[in-house]
Amino acid sequence: MTRLTETARGVYVIAATPFTDSGEIDFDSCDRMVDFYLDAGATGLTVLGIMGEAPKLTTDESSTIVARILKRVNGRVPVVVGASAPGFAQMQDLTRRVMDAGAAGVMVAPPGSLRTDDQIVTYYTQVAEFLGDTPFVVQDFPLTTGVQMAVPALARIFNSLPTAVCLKHEDWPGLAKITALRKDGTLNRRISILCGNGGVFLPEEMERGADGAMTGFAYPEMMVSVVEHHAKGDMERARDLFDAYLPLARMEQQPGAGLAIRKYIMFRRGIIASPAQRKPGANLDALSRAEIDTLMARLDRRLKELA
């Protein structure tokens, strides 16, 4: 079993959870989705993230879908599992289940009740104690969690907890945070920094010192291309490709509608059989679907020009 380490880089796609129109888990679409992500060049997958509708799943369903994805991946890339929970007992139980099944590590977001640096550091210290030797990702997503994780707090976490190996950087604006974390003397080791927010700042994040992306844009091949061209030193090509996808990445970032848009695009691309979310969930009206169809058609034309 490959374990997550500080060397994680590339694109860890946040996997959606496919449902049927009636709200059941669609395992056939799940298999097809995994194949698509790997064919697109994903270097890892992240399951049961915020955009994976994890709170709408039972504990048994969560374990079952992780097992299905791990079986389909078959060790080709590391799989990280979102393990955030209201209490440590639930977090510990899910972590044990998924690590026994072959996961590479887990991701933990802070509860919204945390306000001070000391509270944040204490929380993650307890996370590390409960998870034992399991490597974990610290999810920094204040737009959703409401928790502001300043650089000094993050430094205390990573400098004192060896099993905290990766930061999912999803602050907005947050480019200066990447620079501060990469500054000599801030951290006592180099950690992995993978970025979110649908990839809308990925070129700048890579230039600031990020190692890649951990997010769920419906065109993961864009993120793979940006990361690969950055590694080659060809940011002009990376930005040209990024710019072509930006209208759709921007469309996906709409609060409240983003997941519906992402699932609709995945449905239109033949990745999942239905764009349905498990209730409660937003639905797109006909005009919104038509707007997305237009952007997808424009993207196809632009990619042919760039080729």
Rank of each mutant, 00 (worst) to 15 (best):
T95Y: 00
D211L: 09
V138S: 12
G258C: 09
A40S: 15
K168G: 11
G216N: 07
P152R: 12
L114F: 05
V73F: 00
A85N: 11
A15Y: 07
S274M: 04
P162T: 10
G233Q: 08
H169V: 01
I261D: 05
L175G: 07
G174M: 02
L248F: 10
L287D: 15
A103F: 00
V77G: 05
Y123T: 04
V106W: 12
R189S: 10
F267Y: 15
V98W: 10
D285C: 03
R302Y: 06
G216S: 14
D171R: 07
G174I: 04
F267I: 01
L175M: 14
F88M: 14
A231P: 01
R301N: 13
W172H: 14
T186I: 05
N197W: 10
A297V: 05
S22K: 12
S62M: 10
A307P: 00
F36S: 08
M214L: 08
V138R: 03
V121K: 06
L248R: 05
I265P: 13
H229T: 03
V226R: 02
G23W: 02
A273N: 15
M223R: 00
R32Y: 05
D300S: 13
G233M: 09
K71V: 04
T2V: 10
M51K: 08
A155S: 13
Q277F: 03
M214E: 01
V108F: 07
V138Y: 05
I272W: 02
V106L: 02
T64H: 15
A164D: 07
A67C: 09
R68N: 03
I265D: 12
L167I: 00
A16I: 14
G212P: 05
A176D: 04
H169Q: 14
A164I: 02
A103V: 02
R97G: 11
M51L: 14
K56A: 09
R302C: 05
G52L: 08
L303Q: 00
Y264L: 13
S22H: 11
L4K: 05
M107F: 00
D31E: 13
L57G: 04
A155E: 01
P275G: 03
A155Q: 01
T59M: 13
L143C: 00
P280E: 02
R289M: 14
V34I: 08
V224Y: 11
P247N: 04
D243M: 08
F242H: 14
S288F: 09
K304F: 14
K71D: 15
G44W: 06
G44Y: 02
I193N: 06
D28M: 15
F136E: 08
R182D: 09
R208C: 13
M51V: 13
P152Y: 06
A307Y: 04
K304P: 00
Q119H: 07
Q119E: 15
D118E: 14
